[in-house]
């Protein structure tokens, strides 16, 4: 659905985005993670045909960005929620959506149905005649999402949709994104909320001008290694340590009868460890696997580029 190859954007001497190559499948939620200034918004703007690319190619549903004729077709099949929601404060929620529905050539019936559908889904139907300027941040964000969906786009670009929202509003937005996934919408989500990305994204790209890594949340977590098994025993003795050494494991440390063992694949290796300890007369109280998190992967990758 979205294909980018060596996509690059330069502003004068400044390279905002360099050599991005990625693919987003239809119906997938693709999370774009990166620190401020990493080029997330620039990428979305290029993909939405708002700004030009410097080099490389990108296709949205087989339409090529940078091609004038295709740009108009791309804009018809995408919806954008920018980082600044940009509503018309002087217009009511209904009028804001109706205006965009008209721009997207929706029929009157289509507009009425979709406005009602999305405002009801996002809990704003009762506020339809209220000026958007009086809305809270969360309500504005929801209205901006409804606006981006008014023409039922195939692809939705969301630039930091939950930033500055209270936890309840953020959850509503996240749940709504998951609802959209059920409708087979392709969603491109810019965020620096790691927890959010981990919870709702099928695939994640970590960006810091260049694409540092791409994969499923699990793949990224596993990509930096560093997983550990922590075993609490009644008592650690030399017999147990010698038994473990025979297994050719990673680094083993012992502290307060707690063994911490570095492992590549704890799920495969833990049974042998447990057998060895029990065989050496040890009494196990607990076994815990500590994996590297998406946060670990993210921080490692971002720090590496500094």
């Amino acid at each position: 659905m979205i294909d980018a190859e060596n996509l690059t954007k330069k502003f004068g001497n400044l390279t905002a985005v360099e050599d991005l190559t990625f693919h987003v499948d239809e119906g997938e939620i693709f999370g774009f993670l990166g620190p401020n200034g990493a080029g997330k918004t620039t990428t979305v703007r290029m993909l939405c045909c708002l700004i030009s690319k410097t080099s490389g190619t990108a296709k949205i549903a087989d339409y090529e960005i940078g091609n004038d004729a295709d740009s108009m077709k791309i804009r018809k099949i995408i919806g954008l929620v920018p980082d600044n929601v940009g509503l018309y404060d002087g217009l009511s929620a209904y009028d804001n959506l109706d205006f965009y529905g008209k721009l997207y050539d929706c029929t009157e019936t289509q507009r009425k149905e979709n406005i009602e559908k999305f405002l009801k889904m996002l809990g704003l139907w009762d506020k339809r005649d209220v000026s958007a300027g009086t809305f809270s941040k969360g309500m504005k964000q929801k209205l901006a999402i409804a606006r981006a969906l008014i023409h039922e786009p195939e692809i939705l670009f969301l630039d930091e949709p939950t930033v500055n929202l209270d936890p309840e509003s953020a959850k509503t937005v996240r749940d709504f994104i998951l609802e959209l996934k059920k409708e087979k919408k392709t969603i491109f989500l810019n965020t620096h909320n790691l927890d959010e990305a981990q919870r709702i994204c099928d695939k994640i790209g970590i960006l810091n001008t260049k694409l540092m890594a791409i994969g499923t949340p699990k793949e990224l977590e596993g990509s930096i290694g560093g997983r550990k098994t922590v075993i609490q025993l009644d008592q650690v003795n030399d017999t147990i340590l010698n038994a473990l050494k025979k297994l050719s494991l990673g680094n083993i440390t012992s502290d307060n009868n707690k063994l911490t063992i570095d492992l590549e694949n704890p799920e495969k290796e833990n049974w042998a460890i447990v057998n060895a300890i029990v065989g050496a007369g040890g009494h196990i109280q607990t076994v815990t696997v500590l994996g590297s998190t998406l946060e670990d992967a993210y921080l490692k990758l971002v720090r590496e580029t500094k």
């Binding site: 045909c49 077709k73 929620v81 920018p82 600044n84």
Partner: peptide
Amino acid sequence: VEKSLEPLLATPIT
């Protein structure tokens, strides 16, 4: 000022 230009420019309008 109202930051409404970006979503407007993202619509199929010249």
